[in-house]
């Protein structure tokens, strides 16, 4: 037992570090490859992509206005996750003792305490949210696992720093190893962590505004036999939230997913949504999703506007409007 734990503390740490760095390199490599493979590569400049990513990191865009409280919790949670392990004084002293002898200014201990508590509180909030609105979010087992794996190192770390559980002999001896192993699991999980766009079936009308605004062409759309398909490639997603920003129906949501399958299926794309297309009444060409047409019809009839040309394609509309209203005839 003791040898095994010693292994977790020394050799496994190195294995995890190498695995993490290789995995991140693999992710970046296939991110670049898949971006250059996409068909509409020339649409957005590299500068625009970069700006979108920076804009997503700063919490002042339209998605914030849609859910201000949730976004505040999300940003606080993610910044704490990054700051606490790196700038915690106990971790820095370990770096100082190691062969690298690195040192940087640590965070005050009280701050680190409160930030850890904030992370744990946010974890509880996310878990409760997943359980309460499970059907709406379509959450699977991996979503719960993700929150547990993220929360465990912080929970054990908090107890370890305060010695709360030292009265129990088992925890006094082994809590340190719990902390190390859960931290290693969390680090190795990061490379299997993907962002996933979900389009809610009930509200999405299939207008493809998300596709038009995606800076990395992660979302793709193609029409085939009176159906419109939305495809999603997980390696390209930079989790910028453009799709959530623009969605006029608030149907697009972004969430994390841990998936080993996605990690080795580098260049494949998943169909995440299909909608039926309406056809032109005159020539039979597919024009627009039926649900979007229904929505437009609702808006127009609410405003008492005549809309007998709604179900025609652009070309037929032009011909009919000439012969019908005769705006250029005597």
């Amino acid at each position: 037992m003791g040898e095994l734990l010693y292994f977790a503390e020394t050799t496994l740490l190195w294995i995890v570090a190498v695995f993490f760095l290789l995995g991140i390199g693999w992710r970046i490599f296939f991110f670049i490859v898949s971006i250059f493979r996409s068909r509409t590569f020339s649409r957005h400049s590299v500068w625009h992509r970069f700006l979108t990513l920076v804009g997503a990191l700063i919490p002042f865009h339209r998605a914030v206005l849609k859910k201000p409280m949730y976004t505040a919790i999300r940003y606080g949670f993610h910044s704490c996750i990054f700051i606490v392990p790196i700038w915690f004084s106990g971790h820095i002293s370990l770096w100082e003792e190691s062969r690298f002898e690195w040192y940087w200014t640590p965070l005050p201990d009280a701050w680190a305490d409160w930030m850890t508590l904030a992370v744990l509180g946010a974890c509880v909030f996310f878990l409760a949210r997943r359980i309460i609105v499970k059907a709406w979010l379509n959450a699977g087992i991996s979503d719960f696992l993700l929150i547990l794996i993220t929360g465990l190192p912080f929970l054990t770390g908090y107890f370890l720093a305060h010695g709360t559980l030292n009265s129990i002999p088992f925890f006094e001896n082994y809590l340190w190893y719990f902390h190390v192993i859960s931290g290693e699991i969390m680090i190795s999980m990061i490379i299997f962590l993907f962002c996933r766009t979900r389009l809610k079936m009930e509200t999405c009308v299939g207008c493809a505004a998300c596709v038009e605004n995606c800076p990395t062409e992660t979302l793709e759309v193609y029409d085939k036999d009176a159906f419109r398909f939305f495809r999603y490639s997980h390696y390209q997603c930079i989790c910028c939230g453009s799709c959530v920003n623009v969605c006029p129906e608030n149907a697009a949501t972004l969430s994390h997913a841990i998936s080993v399958k996605h990690f080795y299926r580098m260049l494949s794309k998943d169909v995440i949504r299909d909608v039926e297309l309406a056809t032109c009444e005159r020539c039979g060409v597919t024009i627009a999703p039926k649900s979007q047409m229904g929505k437009l019809e609702g808006i127009l009839s609410a405003n008492d506007v005549e809309m007998d040309l709604l179900n025609y394609c652009t070309r037929c509309k032009k011909m009919i409007s000439r012969s019908k209203c005769g705006f250029d005839r005597t």
Binding site: C207, E212, A288, C313, K317
Partner: peptide, 18 residues
């Protein structure tokens, strides 16, 4: 503009497009 092409479907002349 978000590029949802609602205007092009609603336009009776098919004048605007994405």
């Amino acid at each position: 503009c978000i590029g949802c092409s609602s205007c092009s479907y609603a336009c009776p002349f098919g004048a605007c497009f994405v």
